[in-house]
Design a protein around this nucleic acid. Structure first.
Length: 444
RNA sequence: GCACGGGUAGCUCAGUUGGUUAGAGCAGCGGUUUGUGGAACCGAAGGUCGACAGUUCGAAUCUGUCCCCGUGUACCA
């Protein structure tokens, strides 16, 4: 007889997926409620679209291969490829195209939702995360772009960040377009290599990014990345353009004017903001945090941006609805929450129940009477839900950080009293049952 | 994808040049206390040493392949 192999299911999570606990979720809820308040104030509509879309509707992937390109989670349903959305902008474009005649123009909507990316996770980068997205569809008015930056900063400040804690960086695709014209660079491949190199200045520094503009760069691990093969003169021109404080881009100048009218000052023109995305056509923005963020091991990490966006005047027209300019911004909520959790002055109390200890299984009725008194006044409470001795019950109450344990045993029942034990101080007091609510409110 | 580092108890890790029955701390369980948590002490339990193959009298330890995790780098619509 062969020994049967025990099959142990894995207790590990798929790479890039995380369990999220109450501490984090409560801060996330707080952030979300701030977002909703601000969005209502700015006049945006709330929208939800499904997690899955037809692959062809949200990406540039052609279903001519066995599987759609990497980067999205996909499966074949009947004969059609479906994918989990990788952002909220592509589904919005699809929604607008589908409901083009019904929606108001301009159309302002905001959305909160989980998005998925099938790529290698890194520190602070997951394969499943919550995004917030606000967009203006059907307007070329740059006031829309300006308001997006302003509303993001209002959300951040509502969440407890100060002006020194964050900055909104803006630039424009038009700025780089002009630059390429000046440099007489027309090759799309070369342009995208250059844009990617510029995007890395933040992380690698100019001297390393410069190598990517030239021949190429070898990183610490020995991996080699080919560069854009620019001549030294061309690199010099780029370097000088990046240093300019005065944006050589009309749209950016216009937005800055609007910022001034709104008295919004927490922005900075930064030509190295690229966002790597192909679909941006005009102004682009990025939101960066200015305080140190530490990882779980306590090391300070380069946190990068928590969000960004820009103008994408062609996205909707891909679906055949012509002339539908749009601009939008999104925030990675989990990243923001992670950063907020590290601000010392940031605390949200979680509510833990009062625990009614069980002395005698036959007295359940009496315990429930007490429980009902508490719950009818909305006091978080429970009868000890396990089975075990008092010691075990106290250990449980301690572990869940209950503020108070209630003893209602034989002695107390006889005297129509309950004994309250304050679990923070260890103090105990006996009170008449009819005074229970008043007394317990003093403890919790 | 490429490079480097890891995988030993529920968790964090130790394990000498290959050598009997693989260790510790914490958590959990039982007890000291059958009505009192956060402290202490005592006890028992807990392992296919990531998987498979190879070398060897003998492998957690050496070799190969694969899987998974982490970090850097690339890609990211």
């Amino acid at each position: 007889m062969e020994k049967e192999k025990k099959i142990k299911p894995s207790k590990e999570l798929p790479s890039g997926f995380e369990d999220r606990q109450e501490k984090e979720l409560l801060i996330r809820d707080f952030v979300i409620s701030n977002i909703k308040e601000v969005m209502i104030k700015y006049g945006f509509q709330y929208l939800e679209t499904p997690s899955f879309e037809y692959t062809e509707s949200i990406g540039k992937f052609l279903p001519d291969k066995d599987r759609p390109g990497e980067g999205v989670f996909s499966f074949k349903d009947e004969n059609k490829w479906l994918s989990l959305r990788y952002d909220l902008t592509a589904p919005l474009a699809r929604y607008v195209a589908k409901n083009f005649n019904e929606i108001p123009k301009p159309f302002k909507r905001y959305q909160l939702g989980t998005v998925w990316r099938n790529e290698k996770p890194g520190p602070g980068r997951y394969r499943e995360f919550l995004q917030f997205d606000a967009d203006y569809v059907g307007t070329k008015n740059l006031q829309a772009d300006a308001e997006l930056c302003i509303l993001i900063s209002e959300i951040l400040e509502k969440c407890g960040l100060g002006k020194a804690d964050y900055i909104v960086k803006i630039s424009s695709r038009k700025f780089t377009d002009k630059l390429f014209e000046q440099l007489k660079i027309k090759s799309k491949d070369q342009i995208s290599i250059i844009l990617r190199a510029l995007d890395k200045i933040d992380r690698l520094g100019w001297s390393e990014a410069q190598k990517l503009l030239g021949e190429g760069r070898k990183d610490k691990s020995g991996d080699y990345t080919k560069g854009a093969n620019l001549k030294n003169e061309q690199i010099k021109i780029i370097e000088n353009a990046l240093k300019s404080d005065v944006p050589d881009s009309e749209d950016v100048l216009e937005i800055i004017k609007i910022f001034e009218a709104y008295n919004f000052k927490n922005y900075k023109f930064d030509p190295s903001v690229i966002r790597g995305l192909e679909y941006y056509t005009g102004p682009i923005f990025e939101v960066n945090l200015n305080f140190d963020v530490k990882n779980l091991k306590g090391q300070t990490i380069q946190f990068g941006s928590i969000g960004g966006g820009g103008r994408y005047d062609n996205l909707v027209s891909n679906f055949g609805n012509l002339d539908c300019p749009a601009t939008g911004i999104s925030i990675g909520l989990d990243r923001l929450v992670f950063a907020l959790m590290q601000k010392k002055d940031f605390k949200i109390k979680s509510t833990r129940p009062v625990v009614i200890c069980v002395f005698d299984q036959n007295k359940t009725k009496q315990y429930i009477d007490i429980l009902n008194k508490l719950r009818s006044t909305n006091i978080s409470s429970e009868i000890y839900p396990g089975e075990g001795k008092l010691k075990k019950q106290m250990e449980y109450a301690n572990k869940i950080e209950s503020p108070c344990a209630i003893f209602y045993g034989e002695d107390e029942i006889k005297k129509a009293e309950v004994k309250l034990r304050n679990l923070k101080t260890g103090e105990e007091l006996s009170v008449k049952v009819e005074n229970l609510i008043d007394e317990i409110k003093k403890i919790i």
